[in-house]
């Protein structure tokens, strides 16, 4: 379907490669609708249909589904260290998405974070410009567990009045970072949280109140 004449692809064709979507058209559509729904309704969760996706660790099936849905040769992707150190992960992403993988977070359209507890600051990514705020990075935090960590209260577009949201692991002072990020609206990055099967999102438009412990 996609042109994939690159040297990397040729090199990895010799190694066994985990499969992508069983039904590329409809699986991607289903996954996209889930992402669209959670982006449109910050703090709510949707379940992804992951089928038989078994990507190489530390790439989780949910993260792989998001990658297969949104990445391609027009989207430079930044990986955090554990993902970057895995040749199998890079081969999987390159083969199935053809996305360029790069080491500069500020140039990335998407960032995949497998160890959110120690992720780099949100300000390291592309924040977009005042004239083109859409050029910012979308950061995907994987391995999330919802409803266990300290909750925050969300308000704003997509939210009827207020909603409580809790996810983890996240780095220390994560929510302060998100608050500052969202204060720059319309600039700023958008966050997607991927659990085992469930996903949630937090666009830059959301106003966040930290709940006192």
């Amino acid at each position: 379907m996609e042109p994939s004449i690159t040297t990397e692809n040729r090199a990895i064709r010799t190694a066994p490669l985990a499969a992508g979507f069983a039904d590329p058209v409809h699986d991607a559509q289903g996954c996209f609708r889930a992402i669209m729904d959670v982006m449109a309704r910050p703090g709510t969760r949707k379940t992804l249909e992951l089928g038989k996706l078994t990507p190489p660790a530390p790439l989780t099936p949910a993260a792989a589904a998001i990658a297969l849905t949104l990445f391609d040769y027009d989207t430079p992707v930044w990986l955090d260290r554990p993902l970057m150190q895995s040749d199998a992960v890079k081969a999987f992403l390159r083969f199935h998405t053809v996305a360029p993988i790069l080491s500069e977070p500020v140039e990335a359209a998407f960032a995949l974070v497998s160890e959110p507890g120690s992720m780099i600051p949100l300000t390291s990514f592309n924040q977009g410009s005042a004239e083109y705020p859409d050029e910012s990075t979308t950061v995907i935090l994987t391995g999330q567990v919802f409803g266990k960590a300290q909750a925050v209260t969300l308000e704003g577009p997509g939210i009827k009045e207020k909603i409580s949201f809790s996810t983890g692991p996240t780095p220390p002072i994560f929510w302060d970072q998100v608050v500052s990020n969202n204060r720059q609206f319309p600039r700023g990055i958008d966050l997607v949280f991927a659990g085992e099967k469930e996903i949630a999102a937090l666009p830059r438009s959301t106003r966040i109140t930290l709940t006192e412990a």
Partner: peptide
């Protein structure tokens, strides 16, 4: 789809 997500976020 990517454009739609950005549109929703902004």
């Amino acid at each position: 789809r990517r454009a739609i997500l950005k549109g929703i976020a902004i």
